[in-house]
Amino acid sequence: MLEINKLNKRFGAKQVLYDIDLKLQPGEIVGLFGENGAGKTTLMKCILGLLRYDGTVRLDGEPITRKNIGRFAFATSEHSFFPDLSAKGHAEFFADHFGTFRQKRFDGLMDFFALPKSKAIRSFSTGQQNQFEVVLALSQGADYIFMDEPFAGNDVFNREDFYKVLVGILEPTETVLLSTHLIEEVSDFVGRAVLIHRGRIVGDSTADELDSKGITLMDYIKETYNYRADRVARALDSINE
């Protein structure tokens, strides 16, 4: 289990995360939702040790060190592949360095996205690069897979089909933390929604809880963020006055 306790993060004078407490159980598929600048990416980077923070992050009771950091994978729209290395080269590198690398899953996902294996990733389109980022993260063999806006720049068919494939390939022990703005597309996929607003967790609910209340994920998010349905009309009125 991944446990985050009282995680705080500042960039200079600006505090961006406030007392984040979060537990991720093995096998959960968690959607992390929030407006731009809410702190989703920063939270992921803190957990991965890419940013310094105050607070504690523990994985099965152990602090995150070089010994267990390989249990995390990270697909980010900032891209983390080696730009001049081919997909095949990446597979070899990952197989060398991550004993858990899943070659079969890598090949299957490469075929699914129809990505070329021998070209340098730099030559891929942005959409293909995002796809490759996801392929790598899922093939690493990590227990906790973080995806930060993984499908920016991808068409709707690719995204929808991918989520279906993802549900089909994930093993019961694999945990996914997915940050995205495409809420409706992932509403059938995530089992739990964590809402973050201005650096604070403002909502945390499982899909079952939402079902029992008879509300959709989108409704839950709008309700939690006090979304005002008349926002657009008011904006248009004030502009056209």
């Binding site: 890419l50 070089r66 995390f72 983390s80 592949f81 360095h97």
Partner: peptide
């Protein structure tokens, strides 16, 4: 850290010597 942040992968390796 040019063009992509491949340092994110390097930081997940078990050896910091790499």
């Amino acid at each position: 850290s040019q063009y992509s942040n491949s340092i994110y992968i390097m930081r997940r390796l078990s050896s910091n010597r790499e």
